[in-house]
Each structure stands twice: as C-alpha cells, then as structure tokens.
Amino acid sequence: MRVFERPKMLKDKVFHYCPGCTHGIVHRLVAEIIEEMEIRERTVGVCPVGCAVLAYDYLDIDMQEASHGRAPAVATGIKRVLPDRVVFTYQGDGDLAAIGMTETVHTAARGEPLTVIFINNAIYGMTNGQMAPTTLLGQRTQTTPYGRNAAKEGYPIKVCEMLATLDGPSYIARVSVGSYKSILNARKVLREAFRRQIEENAYALVEVLSTCPTNWSMKPRDAMDWIENEMQETFPVGIFKE
C-alpha cells in the first residue's frame, strides 16, 4: 500500500505562496521527480527573482539564487563546471520571456544540457500583477488596466513554439497544472525533461501554465479553470520538440 506523504526533499515548511497558487504543486512535482530519480545529492537548482525566489526554503537541495532573468546563464556556469550534476532552472514568465529572453534563447541555441522549468502565470506575481510577455489579449493587469490591447501592448509570446524552431533544444513541451489529469501529465513531461539532461546530455524546457489567483483576482477554483479554458486557447498544451 502506498501512503500519500510529503516527498522527503520537500522541507516541512509552510509555503509562502498565496492560497490556490500552483507554484506549490510544481515544487512538489519537482521534488517527487528528483526523489524518484535518486538524483537529490547531485542536483543543483537555480531560482531567479520572482515569487519562487525562495524555492530554496522548500527544496532540500543545493541551490543558487539568480538575478532577474539570468538563471540560464547562471545554470550554464554551474553545468560547465560540474557536467555530471543535474542542473535546473525554475523561472517565471517575466523572468524567462521578458528581461531574460536573450539568455533563454541563447542557452537553448547552445543546447546547454539543462532542464528549464518555466512557470507561465501570464503575470508578474511578485511585483503585484503587472503585464507579463505572456499576458493574454484582453487580460487586465495593474499595467493593462483596460485589458491587454494588441495595438498598444503587442501579442503574448509563445515561448515553446519559438524555441522549437531552434536546433539546440532536445525537448520542448507545454503542460498545465489546472486539473488533476493535467497535473499527472505535467509530472510525466517534467520527468522526461530531467531524463533528457541525465541520459542524453540535452537541453529541455517545460512551460507550465500556472495560476496566480491573487493577481488575477480569482478564486483558486476559478483560476484552475481559467488555465484549462482561457490560457490553453493561446498556449496549447503539447510537445513542441521531441
């Protein structure tokens, strides 16, 4: 009989995340996968500025904090020094697709053997809800109070589709954590992204459609539904490169 319990590498500490925020779910998935693959002792995580900057408070592994947007460069530095360690980044959409887009694209183009976990919550969570590069058209944020208008603010950036045009990456996928079924799929895909690095010495990125009920001004339940329904229209779930 299997008992549902906390993965050992997830510290016994209450998440600082808001109620209904799915950062916690993704942390748990990452913890489960690392434990299952028995790589805890040779994994180094990189968490840049964003709501998950304190990920090291929860994940009981070696970690480096990175400045806003630079996690792929920091991870590159680590991986080049320690090629036999497993190195992953855990980045928000503002981090990965706005301020850090250059590092994102070039790290992927180099095919740097890293696992990039990309939390797309269509908003800047940590700074109280400004427009992100992934904010949906029409979506209201602190800095698009009338809704994102393509004529003024341009279009959401589809990171997976874009990176899939590069030759460097081995695996590019988008998943959601908006329902139980989606979470099970996310777990499978995330595991594959770690496997690519470990077994094939290859670059993998997984975009996770994630909630920010606080800054979306939604109830947790509605936020989950919003990813499954609204977000997936702009950001379809799937494998873009394999």
Binding site: V44, A73, G77, V81, E103, V105
Partner: peptide
C-alpha cells in the same frame, strides 16, 4: 578548461556567478 563567447556581458557575468558558485576559478 571552458571558454564561452556569451550572448552579452550580462550573460557573461552571470555565467561567472554560476561557475564561481560551483567552486571554480573563473
């Protein structure tokens, strides 16, 4: 050793950060 022509000085200094944090002379 390793030489990387980084995509910018921002990337370069942050690669330095990662490598230094991993214990290397960089």
């Amino acid at each position: 050793g390793v030489f990387i022509q980084a995509e910018s000085e921002l990337a370069a200094i942050n690669m330095v950060y990662g490598a230094a944090g991993a214990g290397a002379r960089v």
